[in-house]
Design a protein around this nucleic acid. Structure first.
Lengths: 251, 251
DNA sequence: GAGTGGTCTAGACCACGTG
DNA sequence: ACGTGGTCTAGACCACTCG
């Protein structure tokens, strides 16, 4: 049987003593997968088989398999069996942080200047938000964020008045819109899009850049429960701001 | 005692029957945290206290606490106790995919054109890679990727010959450098930077864009084990390509 | 009905941090 | 010495899938 030889390799792959058993089981299974002895979609031995082959209690085997499942190595189906997951390769991720936090983390000073804070009407085009009908009120703010006095972000934001009725009454020298909105309407989900654009005349002036400097534009829409809370257009000068990310492989 | 009242609230928060016990325990604890009854850095009842208060076996309590820890809600210290983690807010992530896969997922046709495939010498400046000394050989490739015949990415790549000695012998009409490199040197870690730049004359010509169109530049460095494998500069026309991402809150 | 994973228990031993 | 979390076991019952 293929599973017989595979399991005997499994047992030998569990050599080292100092680690907890469930971890050695996990490592042994990962070894089989990495070595190609167990292929994606292939069924691996059942819990009770592993109990017999490895001489370990079922709860311990179960923990190892459960953790490997949540880590994406395995797929389990009750009544059917445990299978090697499709190789995910890797997922390269970029984190997009709150600007004030990010500047603080770099040990720099964050300041901001409020350009606009007003109530407007949704026009169904650029000034709109999911769930807010045309002609309904919206809040609008424009803020420039500075890092050690240098402008690094122009934040243009629309807010759903139903979700944050006191948005216009806040002092945005003290609290950032992001922080305030997170308090009154905790984020449940969001989407964003990153693109490269050229700044218009107003943007050039506020960010103190010239007409030839490309910018990163992050458009972000966030939700609390089933309600759209806010949509933001965050514009960064290309020469002063970059998005960083690290990633790791899975298999 | 504060923990006494907190625990009695805990027990009442565990109402519903149909869910497994460890899940109800998890939900009850999350409820306490969200409601603010248990604050960040505050110690929560010990496993044995929870066993007594909730009338559940310790293994079940342990599983609930262990999972909440791996999900970022709690921090545990052996010999000390279990504490509510600092609120993470959320982490907004952008996924950066393999271009060929991404185009295929959209149901479009991916083609590519090889511009350059050569051996060069590391010069310690732009042509360099961690772990490869100046004057050592490097492989260099330039490929344009097309989506339904329209150029969407210019891939400029340096490869460590030690990690992929046969890189120059591959047919990049058949396999993408990304896919080939993942096969011979499975990725273990990577970093990337996204910025907005203006294209130079060569880039304008190959991507068929005009001089005023800003581009997204993704610079990516990947490692396999402790060895740098490849560094890539991926240039996307700003009008034809955007990075998308979704995110969800944690707490 | 036989085999699978999903869960739960009671009790045990250990390593660790604190007083 | 004590309480904490970390782990492990043997055995149990259940829900599910499949032939």
């Amino acid at each position: 049987m293929t599973s017989q030889s595979a399991v005997s390799q499994l047992a030998s792959a569990m050599g080292q003593q100092p680690a907890p058993i469930y971890l050695r089981v996990k490592q042994a299974i990962i070894t089989q997968i990495r070595a190609g002895h167990w292929q994606p979609h292939q069924r691996i031995p059942s819990e009770s088989e592993l109990v017999n082959e490895l001489g370990v209690s079922r709860m311990t085997i179960n923990r190892a398999l459960r953790e490997l499942t949540s880590e994406g190595y395995l797929v389990r189906m009750q009544g059917v069996g445990t299978f090697v997951a499709e190789s995910k390769g890797y997922t390269a991720m970029l984190e997009v942080h709150n600007i004030a936090e990010e500047i603080a983390l770099r040990g720099h000073e964050h300041t901001s200047r409020l350009l606009t804070l007003e109530e407007i009407q949704a026009d169904g085009e650029r000034l709109t938000m999911p769930g807010v009908a045309q002609g309904q009120p919206l809040f609008h703010s424009q803020i420039v964020h500075y890092e050690d006095g240098i402008p690094v972000q122009l934040e243009d934001r629309l807010v759903n008045p139903i979700m944050a009725p006191d948005y216009l009454k806040q002092d945005y020298q003290v609290i950032t819109p992001y922080t305030y909105l997170m308090q009154v309407a905790p984020l449940s989900a969001g989407e964003h899009v990153v693109e490269a654009v050229m700044p218009d005349a107003f943007q050039q002036k506020t960010l103190m850049i010239d007409a030839r400097e490309p910018c990163l534009l992050v458009r972000r829409q966030t939700w609390s429960g089933n309600h759209a809370v806010t949509g933001a257009r965050l514009l960064y000068p290309g020469t002063r701001y970059k998005l960083l990310g690290k990633f790791r492989g899975h298999n």
